[in-house]
Amino acid sequence: MSAPDPWERFRAATRARIGLGRSGDALPTKALLDFQASHARARDAVHGAVDFDALAQGIDHPVIQVHSAAPERESYLRRPDLGRRLDAASRERLAGLMAEPADAVFIIGDGLSTAVQHHAVPLLELVLPELEGWKLAPVILAGQARVGLGDEIGAALKASLSVMLIGERPGLSVADSLGVYLTWQPRPGLTDAERNCISNIHAHGLSYREAAARLVWLMKESRHRRLSGVTLKEASVLEIPP
């Protein structure tokens, strides 16, 4: 029988790697390999490719695929500015697509992980039925995308509101966390202070249902107040549905 673990009563209070024990001064083998497995998952999430064709199959709404000006992952990581601009072919594809302004456009971008592969469609399925009477642009699927790419896409589609679903930077404990960014009157040159964010959507974080409720509330309030960002955030603290 092994000795009782003095850290047992603390483990429920934190996911931190406490009470690992030691070999000499170093990590014991099990803790060493656990860490490597977590890091490997995070790395694979950063460098994995989202299968946008498969994603498109699951969306019950017109879909258009676009790509940022970052041709592949390394330039995406080195040059955040490229990930915030469309490539020439995509810009052409979106130009003149919407004869009339849209109330909103949903954009699904890969961002820094493959989180949208599993989380984007279930979230959309909860949100779309709540938007009766909204004129929605086609859902845009964007490869090598940063959050700011939604500004150019939204402007090209004359959308009053852009909603970007995007993979967050993976951590060791969660490699597939989804973030949602909402921007009123998207256009190139906006800063993150002018957006609202719902983050930490994953199996052990915010549920699809909670995230959808917040997003629908934010979309309706944004449209009603004709703004997004810090001002809307302050209101949401008081009024957001539980």
């Binding site: 934190t14 931190a16 790697r17 406490i18 690992l20 030691r22 990590l27 890091h39 993976p170 060791l172």
Partner: peptide, 25 residues
Amino acid sequence: AVPGADDVMLNYQSLAYHDVPTLRR
């Protein structure tokens, strides 16, 4: 240094507590 090199709040990796006695020795 942080527990097991894994900062569960800031989501990045620093040194582990273990690394400090390792270096001192």
